[in-house]
Design a protein around this nucleic acid. Structure first.
Length: 628
DNA sequence: ATAGGGTTAG
């Protein structure tokens, strides 16, 4: 290293002293390592991961800083198996024994990664095998155990063990372990240790202390810790307010909430949830309503919405509860339980016990998507018998969907013909959906004709009917239908796809190769088709609805607008970013298969929005589950 | 590389 230093021209040494100092202590890194370090910091994560075998093959060892960054990226974007991949690399290439704490640094980040992926046992196994451990290592596992269900005792045992190991706990450790103190005795002992090492003024430790006392029902203990504080933050306020609200002192909680606002803090979701709980306990409907106004800006917070729902139920305003429940963007078990209990508690036990109209739609829908034909029939018939709910249009529609999806198209037709209601367009379109999945053109044509009887101007149905005739090779009928469309002034809209790249929108029209990059796009398209042929792709020419030779059909398919846009996207889209495409028509089956396979072969996410729904293509599958 | 507060029912 010294000789390298000496060989540098003198003037350069003088001109750039800083870079020379670096040169003096570190030789320039191998280019592969340099690329790897950059990828570990800036991503894309998958590329960094893919480089690990190359590093190993070249006999290079990644540094602890890069590896730690990589683990962080893995927690953010990756999966547990990516994490294991990194762990295996690190273990087999000796990176855990980097000098001056480097190995410890990497090992700690791996332990933390396992914890974040919920793999507590893997974390503990790694921890056990570590040659050295510091506060961070110990704290990571203590916190993980304190947060895991039923492992609080172990967390406390680890605290004892770390001290015996000569590692003093710090504020991080104590704030974690306080959640594991489940008896007043243990809490008092822990509090005393905290006091002894002078960590009782730390805000994190304090909020945990307050929470610990309150959860054990010691309101005074919690209050004392709170009162002694000079500087408080929002979480400390939230802890004390939550403690009062949970222990049934709603008035105390609201008083503290007012003081909090006077002290210049503004409520967040946690605060509002506790305040609502206080309102619930005290039956303060009007205060609760005021809080509702502040809840609106957190429309994705399920916990907060559940608390609001419970407030309305327990304050006796079923109208508000009902309206909220219907409008909630998501509902979980707690939302449902809250609503059911609410109905029961307000003397509407009948409503609580019997599924209502909407519940039954959900039940039938679930049967339909799970292919549970028999169950679906059972519930449909039980509705009237057991629950006294008259099946309405929506329930009949669910049954058509259920039968259609299950491929029982004849049964679905029979069902429609025999039901008490007059079929409407919605039901016929549902039937069409089933035909589409199971490629039943005869029934599709029937359904389309029925739709046109009801709505002669339905463009979609007319196009569909023409296409279905083409499908059935009934070219005369197809021609007649096209003519009917032309007479009505409906023109077949050409397929168009839009893709935005680098703030510019590119439009592709089916069969149109006038884009300035068309040459390269076609080349890319051929490359993609070559790659996915290996994965089983074959052009599905049945999606071409004209009477043409196979080769011509293949060409038409190949230049569908979304394929052009996808090829353009795989050429130019940023690494790691999904390809986003918008389409004016619904995607055809061939392009759907194409997109699925490309997402797999290129390792890219493709998102296509058609006029009705989104398709998220990822590693060979689509979010629509092949039904659209 | 490690930390604290919020929802139903029983």
């Amino acid at each position: 290293m010294n000789s390298l230093f000496k060989r540098l021209p003198l003037n350069r040494v003088a001109a750039t002293p800083r870079s020379n100092r670096r040169l003096h202590t570190h030789p320039p890194p191998h280019p592969l390592l340099a690329i790897f370090s950059r990828l570990c910091i800036e991503g894309p994560f998958t590329t960094a991961l893919a480089l690990l075998p190359d590093l190993a093959a070249a006999g290079l060892r990644a540094g602890p800083v890069s590896l730690t960054h990589l683990v962080k990226l893995c927690v953010r974007h990756g999966t547990a198996s990516d994490g294991r991949l990194i762990h295996r690399y690190v273990e087999t290439h000796g990176s855990l024994s980097h000098g001056s704490g480097g190995g410890l640094y990497v090992a700690n980040s791996l332990v933390s990664m396992y914890v974040k992926f919920g793999l507590l046992n893997d974390a503990l196994r790694l921890f056990d095998g570590m040659p050295e451990r510091n506060v961070v290592s110990w704290t990571t596992v203590v916190a993980a155990l304190a947060n895991a269900d039923g492992r609080k005792e172990e967390a406390l045992r680890f605290l004892v063990a770390m001290r015996r190991d000569g590692v003093p706990p710090n504020a991080y450790t104590f704030s974690s372990v306080l959640g594991a103190c489940s008896t007043p005795g243990v809490l008092a002992t822990t509090h005393a240790s905290i006091f002894k090492v002078g960590l009782d003024s730390d805000v994190f430790v304090r909020s945990s202390l307050i929470d610990g006392y309150m959860k054990l029902g010691d309101l005074d203990g919690g209050r004392r810790v709170f009162d002694e504080m000079v500087t408080r933050d929002l979480v400390v306020w939230n802890s004390i307010i939550a403690g009062f609200a949970q222990s049934g002192d709603g008035v105390g909680a609201i008083e503290l909430f007012m003081r909090m606002k006077d002290a210049g803090f503004s409520a967040n979701q946690g605060t509002l949830t506790s305040v609502l709980r206080a309102c619930t306990g005290m039956v303060m409907l009007e205060v609760g309503r005021q809080v509702h106004a502040h809840v609106l800006k957190y429309d994705k917070d399920l916990i907060l919405h559940n608390a609001l729902l419970d407030m309305y139920c327990k304050c006796g305003s079923l109208e508000d509860a009902d309206a909220l429940f219907r409008r909630m963007p998501q509902r979980d078990v707690i939302s449902w339980s809250t609503m059911i209990s609410g109905l029961a508690q307000n003397g509407r036990s009948a409503d609580a016990l019997s599924p209502n109209r909407i519940t039954m739609v959900g039940v039938l829908f679930a049967c339909s998507h799970a292919g549970l034909v028999e169950d679906g029939w059972y519930y449909f018939r039980s509705m009237k018998k057991l629950f006294g709910i008259q099946p309405e249009r929506e329930h009949h529609n669910c049954m058509v969907d259920l039968l259609g999806r299950a491929g029982k198209l004849d049964e679905a037709v029979k069902f429609i013909q025999e039901m008490d209601l007059d079929p409407d367009c919605v039901i016929w379109r549902t039937l069409l959906g089933g035909c589409r999945i199971h490629k039943n053109s005869n029934i599709a044509a029937y359904a389309a004709r029925e739709i046109l009887k009801l709505e002669p101007e339905d463009q979609g149905a007319r196009i569909l009917l023409s296409n279905t005739y083409a499908d059935l090779r009934q070219w005369t009928d197809a021609e007649k239908s096209w003519k009917a469309m032309r007479d009505r002034g409906i023109k077949k809209e050409p397929g168009r796809s839009w893709i935005e790249l680098k703030k510019q929108v590119h439009v592709f029209i089916a069969g149109d190769l006038s884009h300035p990059c068309s040459g390269a796009i076609v080349e890319e398209l051929n490359r993609l088709i070559g790659r996915i042929s290996g994965l089983g792709y074959a052009p599905q020419t049945e999606f071409v609805l004209q009477d043409l030779a196979v080769e011509q059909k293949e060409d038409l398919l190949k230049y569908h607008s979304e394929k052009l846009a996808i090829a353009f996207g795989t050429m130019l889209a940023m690494e790691g970013k999904p390809i986003r495409i918008m389409k004016n028509l619904r995607i055809c089956g061939d392009c759907h298969a194409f997109a699925k396979l490309v997402s797999k072969s290129e390792g890219k996410t493709i998102i296509i929005r058609d006029p009705v729904r989104f398709h998220h293509f990822q590693v060979g599958a689509c979010s629509c589950g092949d039904y659209w």
